[in-house]
Amino acid sequence: MPAAALCIRTFDSADESEVVALWHACGLVRPWNDPYKDIERKRSFQPGLFLVATQADAAGVEVLVGSAMAGYDGHRGSVYYLAVAPGHQRAALGRRLMQEVEQRLLALGCPKVNVLVRTSNVQVLGFYDALGYARDEAFCLGKRLIPDH
Rank of each mutant, 00 (worst) to 15 (best):
W23M: 02
F45N: 13
L51Q: 10
D34E: 09
P47T: 07
R30L: 13
L28I: 06
G74R: 11
F45V: 15
I39N: 06
S67C: 15
G27M: 11
L51K: 07
L64S: 02
D73A: 02
G27E: 12
A70L: 11
V29S: 07
Y36K: 05
S44L: 14
L64C: 02
R41P: 03
Q46L: 15
T54F: 01
S78H: 07
W23D: 01
F50Q: 14
A59C: 04
A58R: 11
K42A: 15
R41A: 15
G60R: 12
S44V: 10
D73P: 02
G77E: 01
V52G: 09
L64V: 00
D57T: 04
A25G: 03
R30N: 00
R30E: 15
K42C: 09
I39P: 05
L64P: 03
A59M: 08
W32S: 05
V65Q: 12
P47D: 06
T54Y: 00
C26G: 04
A59H: 07
F50I: 02
L28R: 08
E62G: 01
A56H: 04
A58V: 11
A70G: 11
Y80I: 03
L28M: 12
W32T: 04
V63E: 14
Y80V: 00
G77I: 04
S44Q: 15
A25H: 05
V65F: 02
Q46E: 14
Y36M: 00
R76Q: 13
W32R: 08
S78V: 13
A59E: 13
C26M: 04
D38E: 11
I39K: 06
G74T: 01
G27Q: 03
G60H: 10
S78E: 12
R41D: 08
S67K: 04
V52N: 10
K37A: 14
A70I: 08
H24E: 13
V52E: 08
T54E: 15
W32D: 06
F50T: 07
L51W: 12
W23Q: 06
